[in-house]
Nucleic acid binder design. Sequence first.
DNA 1: GTGAAAGCGCTAACAC
DNA 2: GTGTTAGCGCTTTCAC
Lengths: 340, 340
Amino acid sequence: MAGDKVTSTLVARRAGVSQSAVSRVFTPGASVSPKTAEKVRKVADELGYRPNVLARSLITGKSRIVGVVVAYFENQFYPDAVEKLSNALQREGYHVLIFMASQTAGNIDQVLGEIIDYQVDALVVASVAMSSDLVERCDAAGVPVLLFNRIQDDNRFSSVASDNWSGGRKLAEFLLAGGHQKIAHIAGWEGASTQRDREGGFLAGLAAAGAQLHRRTIGDFHFEIAQKAAREMFETPDRPDAVFVANDHMAFAVMDVIRSEFGLRIPQDVSIVGYDDVPIAAWSSYDLTTVRQRSNTMVDEVVSALMSRIEDPQTEPKQITVDAPLIVRGSARKPEGWRE
Amino acid sequence: MAGDKVTSTLVARRAGVSQSAVSRVFTPGASVSPKTAEKVRKVADELGYRPNVLARSLITGKSRIVGVVVAYFENQFYPDAVEKLSNALQREGYHVLIFMASQTAGNIDQVLGEIIDYQVDALVVASVAMSSDLVERCDAAGVPVLLFNRIQDDNRFSSVASDNWSGGRKLAEFLLAGGHQKIAHIAGWEGASTQRDREGGFLAGLAAAGAQLHRRTIGDFHFEIAQKAAREMFETPDRPDAVFVANDHMAFAVMDVIRSEFGLRIPQDVSIVGYDDVPIAAWSSYDLTTVRQRSNTMVDEVVSALMSRIEDPQTEPKQITVDAPLIVRGSARKPEGWRE
DNA sequence: GTGAAAGCGCTAACAC
DNA sequence: GTGTTAGCGCTTTCAC
């Protein structure tokens, strides 16, 4: 429409200055005289010129793109976190190149490779395991990797997670204080560090009071599998009086099954507690007692860790743990004398 | 670690071939002898060479990046759609650069500009209005724009939306057939074409039966505002016996308020219908009768429209409407003799 | 089929 | 403060 590609060369010619002058006008810290700047700006506006970020990146070696790998959006915790992360990064002048790892279970490495090919300045990996092969590639490419909501025994990457162990323990203590006798657990995917830690803390909490797990089934962090796990658990006569479900998303599935298929009341007949404190947990249909993953704080930590590693690649990766408070609502019987 | 940047030049030198040869090996349709290819591949693997996508884009003019603008992820419809879109695009060798438009209400244009600067091959705009200024910029830059779940009276962009008008009408007919007398509506954001069309169809459906709206409040598509809208609607003595809430997300808020704050039963005391059929609508706590936006189909349409416009920029933008079936569940009283 | 050369749009030294 | 020059890593004619 308005002719062909508008490049800095064209703007320079039209404004009667050099290409570098144009470049400097569009480079934050550069020194240009107000006069030149004005001339250039005028022509640029007329022509609708905007610097080509890709060309710039080729030189500077910085793309201002952060790659984000996330398994799925089914569990509200993730879209929520991604939204916050994206917003925070935008504020810093970065953008998010997203990669959904759900479908491509097998060849995560391949497509993760693709994302690195975009010369991303950093990679945030949420709840997905990275092969050590890939870690090496990132390392070689100088791309800092940050694990979000996961911990991996490899200090080559930073990580931000909540204190899952303590969270689990708080839940056990709360349930015990509430006088529950038959405490069960519906686990998530057992390969996840979050699962391991939450359950570890929970069991430690039980053990400290001389209690132990009544039953245990596996929900794999998925809604439908959690439904099955709940059915399996409640079909037997000796049903639990409290269940710690490894995340809120599964807890909703479990609550629905317990109420609609088994006709039990929550918390009168069974107490349910979850983990994450996603927005839905506060909805009155669930009113779920849970442990909060403070996603705002976690995202802030991610951004600051990212920024410092991008600015100074020498920065050592660090493992950050955010505290996880117990959020008491109505889905679990409260200890006697409990007050808000 | 493994020395410095691994470029095609380096690989070429090590393999004893020209840079062009290396390039050809990594270009799908190019002609290279198996011998050369093998030599190059070997060296490339050793060195961990991968073509720099940015440099390639600079030449080809194609970044294989699709920009996606989305207002917020609070309403599950969006993360769900983005996940599907991202997956579909990945399959086509594209990646998604995401931009959350929630926080930056005012300066959407500015940041949308930023996203264009990345030389995206196309732009998918979900539920966000575009200024005509921006449209022009995209047009000039040759970036095809596709509106997702919105319609705008400007045939310069393609759009994919569901048949909101018919969907609204179906809901009215269903409620009427169910014998409801006082039918109310809780609207979403009035600037949205989806709101306009859904309500338009709904009112037309009522009118066709000689009925009219009992009451109307506004929820703006947000959970909390919808709660207020519900309170406002049910505080008065003359409460409705059925409510069409403009989307599922708000419907959940409304149902919760009606049940927990007003002690009413659904559907015995009040029928509720929504719109979208997000996954949560099927959860037994809500079991919501709604109209399905067939997100899989919508995403397929988006991808095919995008691909054809990217491949041939001459392709005329087209407006696609996907049919929207009524999904009958338990949140609204059914017509007599109704069978699944 | 292959290499040499040109150049995508831009930034970064370097002189002036 | 500004222009000149070189070159980021790659693809693409164009001869051979």
